[in-house]
Design a protein around this nucleic acid. Structure first.
Lengths: 164, 164
DNA sequence: TAAGATTGAGATCTCAATCTTG
DNA sequence: CAAGATTGAGATCTCAATCTTA
């Protein structure tokens, strides 16, 4: 499209396209079958075990600070999270999941896993998945980001509730 | 994060994360060094050779119809594209690149390629790139989409202006 | 003054309703 | 009526300015 036929550029371009389609497909399925917008699910998934600072949330979800504030405000209004100001440093704000939030998350999780299977995993070989994970880890680390989102088997194993 | 340690789920999750970071990095570099927003560059790249129908543009850029209308309206206001209504079917509207638009695109292209190299290609092996392309093609085709964005070597070779 | 979060202003997107042409 | 594009209303995001606490 840009006149370049470098295989790696095509991989990059494919990444953008596949991502856009997948976000659409998985997000629509989730919103349709659970009523939970994708961004809400992401917040709940991030804080389901431990509260998170607003700024951590912003970084992890690739949002601006202001964006995180407003997103959490909507979740709080819906009763799925509460904001708490710790006594030892009252500048910070933590978002904690509520019982209602946990219920919503647990109801949505199987739908999410099913959608990922349906629209992504089903079409990908084990080798391709492994290659992608390695590549994404390299890209994240090479650009100064945390690569745990991709390689976090140990951390997940620690609390893994339902191996699905 | 969702309590699942399935390698393919981790690949999916990594895909979302890597994409978000890359869009940020490449987009910021482009906007900073060329003044051209990523969405504008995408439009110009899509119509640099031939005009496109508004609805095609919407589909290719993963936008709603209304979104495409407004995006092209901004580009037109800036003088980078013109809208044309063909005489044989006056319901349709085509977006055509202008000379000014082509200049802007050609100025931005090397910056784009450099950024992709810097933030993505540099960190990825040839094998990984090949595996990703195959996987993305499977995912796109499996979900009923066109996979040419990923495998379009032939189509690109046909007009490839600067093999870079 | 700095760190952390929030708010105000403005940009861009979506959905549904509307306009125009076939 | 159907196809194609646009518009109006509303949601969500970003940037910069502001407020609060350390």
């Amino acid at each position: 499209v840009t006149g370049d036929e470098d295989p790696k550029w095509l991989a990059f371009y494919g990444l953008l396209h596949a991502n856009a389609r997948l976000v659409d497909l998985v997000g629509s399925a989730m919103e349709r079958e659970t009523g939970l917008p994708p961004s809400w699910f992401e917040v709940l998934a991030r804080i389901k075990d431990d509260p998170a600072r607003m700024s951590e949330l912003a970084d992890d979800l690739t949002l601006s600070r202001g964006g995180a504030t407003r997103l959490v405000a909507r979740l709080e209004e819906a009763g799925l999270v509460v904001r708490e100001i710790p006594a030892h440093d009252r500048r910070a704000t933590f978002a904690r999941i509520t019982d209602k939030g946990r219920e919503a998350f647990e109801r949505a999780l199987p739908v999410h896993l099913q959608a990922v299977e349906e629209f992504f995993s089903r079409h990908v070989t084990d080798q391709q998945a492994a290659a992608m994970r390695a590549a994404f880890a390299s890209v994240l680390v090479g650009n100064g980001y945390d690569c745990r989102p991709v390689t976090d088997e140990a951390a997940l194993r620690a609390d893994a509730p339902h191996p699905s």
